[in-house]
Every structure is written in structure tokens, then in C-alpha cells.
Design a protein around this nucleic acid. Sequence first.
DNA 1: GGCATGTATTCCTTGACAGGCATATAACTG
DNA 2: CAGTTATATGCCTGTCAAGGAATACATGCC
Lengths: 114, 114
Amino acid sequence: MSDAALWTALADPHRRAIVALLLERPRPVGEIAEACGLSQPGTSKHLKVLREAGLVRVRHDAQRRVYALDPGPIITLDAWLAPYRKLWNDSLDALGRRLDETASDPPDTPLPKD
Amino acid sequence: MSDAALWTALADPHRRAIVALLLERPRPVGEIAEACGLSQPGTSKHLKVLREAGLVRVRHDAQRRVYALDPGPIITLDAWLAPYRKLWNDSLDALGRRLDETASDPPDTPLPKD
DNA sequence: GGCATGTATTCCTTGACAGGCATATAACTG
DNA sequence: CAGTTATATGCCTGTCAAGGAATACATGCC
């Protein structure tokens, strides 16, 4: 349920952009709208979806509504991801754990296919 | 390939169910269809989306197509999530971190039991 | 009170899927 | 070869969500 709402909320690129914006700092609606190139009503609608998914929360500041990230759902996503993280750890092992970061001196590189 | 395809693919609950199934072990289409209560054509279409998002890969076994998870996109998701993970770590700190766990990732902290 | 600012909500239209069905393709069996 | 199993694809339809425009709501200021 809330899990589904979370995925649905993050499925939209504009909403991911909003979330990324709010990662830097809380912002009022107008600022988000301009930064994302969205209309004000459109921004409000996206924010509503994010709010109902629990991803953001609002602080009333006079007429302004300042939105900020709520870290809660991030934990949910992280938990969902955990089993798969284990998967790619195994996978790295199986391939010789020589991905494109930090590794630079394997004696012989067996050239994984594809 | 795109980030968007990945999120779109995971936005569907049936596809998340398929991914969860494939986490246990690779499976042929028919088995996935039955396990998820989906029709065979529907399952094939979902698998196509997952394939194009890079989340699964196919192994041809006679007439069977055995699908397996591809760990690549998981890394992408994990990278996307990383900044937010930092956010909720900060959040826990701010609260006095007397919650459950705030494990960072030294060489051996393999996610106790999720 | 009236007006300006900032945000939310409603209505409408359009486009993107998901699901069901029939059918096409591929590979094994005899 | 024909028949059978396993999967993919094409078409159709209903549903749902995103975007735009106009408007309602809320708050501060004079």
C-alpha cells in the first residue's frame, strides 16, 4: 500500500527532481516550480503525491508552504534494496570483483563476456 | 538504459513481484506466470519491460526462457539512494540516534538481518 | 474591509500503460 | 513431416495519471 505509493511517487521524473531539490534544502512551492520548470499547480499536485507517499512534509510559513524531505520512506526503500545489494555483492565476487571503481591492478583480467 | 526506464519498470507491483521471485532463483516464464497469478502473455510483456530496463537477463534453455536478475541496475538504485541515506543518518543523529541501528559501512557490516 | 501574494483544487483533455485474447514464432518429439 | 510445448507479439479496450487553464482558498499588508 504505502509501499506502492512510494514507488508510484518516485516513478515520475519530475517528482524525482523535486526530491533531489529538497535534498539540498527545504524550499517553498514557487521555488520548486521554477527550478523544475513546472507550473505552480502542477508542482502542487506533484507535492501532494509526494506528501501522500510520506516522502515530504510541509511547514506553514505565512502564505508559504515550505516543503522538506522526510527520511522515513528512504528507510523503506533501503530495506527493499537490501536483499538485492547482497545479490550484487555475490555477483562482484563471481566476476572477480573488478568493477570500474577502485580496482586497478589485477594480474590477469579474464575479460567477462558482455 | 535510462534511469527513467528503471524506475518505470519497478513502478509496477507485478514487476516488483517478479523481481522478488527472481531474487530467490532464476525461473522460466511459466513458473513466474503461475507464481504471480499472471497470464503468460502478460508475464512476457512484464519481462520485456524488465529486460529493457536491464533488470533481468534471459538464458535460452531449449524452448524455455529462464530469466534471472541482473545486478547492474541495483547498483544504479543504490547510488541514487546514497545521498538520502546520508540524510536519514543525519536525521537519526539529530534525534539523538537512540533508534535501532545507524551502521555505516566499514569492511564488514553486511546488513545483519534486514 | 479590499488587495496582493502564495498555494491548493477542480475540470478537462490527452497519452501511456496493463490486461485479455488471438496468433505468431521457436524448439523439442515422434 | 505433423504435433506439442514454451514463449513472444499484435490488437483492442478500459483505466489512470500528467499537464494546462481557470478558480478557490489562505494569509499578510494597506
